[in-house]
């Protein structure tokens, strides 16, 4: 079980995901997301954002695929989990796992205790996406996620 961290960025969109973590199309394994951070690195302003974490059943089309970094440099990613950011085709959403209203100036962090993680199934292209269905300003936003590859 190796732990990884990845940061996903985009200019906020109300229709397209900021980022996603999905199982690869082959050699899939489960992963558990245990740490999430949302925020904006844009010039501070009072804009309202609704952040959502949603389960997704397709990977969509990511603008780029940031490489998850191993928290322990001795570990290497077996490409079982694919990170995507700045999507041009949105991953197909399903259950909303978390919905948080935030001011653009605010930063959000959620950390799971053992057993409380969000689980990505070992099912091709299924996973979790992060999006801002309400964005008061179309500014740069960032999600950082830590996950444990099973």
């Amino acid at each position: 079980m190796a732990k990884f961290g990845v940061t996903m960025q985009r200019t906020a969109s109300t229709t397209l995901a900021t980022g996603s973590l999905t199982a690869a199309a082959s050699s899939m394994r489960r992963a558990k997301v245990y740490d999430l951070m949302f925020g904006s690195e844009a010039t501070p302003a009072d804009n309202a954002f609704l952040w959502q974490v949603q389960r997704c059943t397709t990977a969509g089309t990511a603008g780029t695929n940031p490489t998850p970094l191993a928290l322990d440099s001795a570990d290497s990613l077996a490409t079982t989990i694919v990170a995507g950011q700045a999507h041009t085709v949105d991953p197909t959403g399903a259950t909303v796992l978390m919905s948080i209203g935030l001011n653009q100036r605010a930063t959000f962090r959620w950390v799971a205790a053992p057993g409380g993680e969000l689980v990505i199934p070992a099912t091709a292209s299924n996973g979790i996406k992060f999006e801002t269905p309400t964005a008061g300003g179309l500014v740069s936003v960032t999600v950082t996620a830590h996950f444990d590859e099973q």
């Binding site: 501070p44 001011n103 605010a106 930063t107 959620w110 205790a113 409380g116």
Partner: peptide
């Protein structure tokens, strides 16, 4: 608890 949530705000 199974998790902890923190929202850091300037207000």
């Amino acid at each position: 608890p199974q998790g902890y949530l923190i929202i850091t705000s300037p207000y």
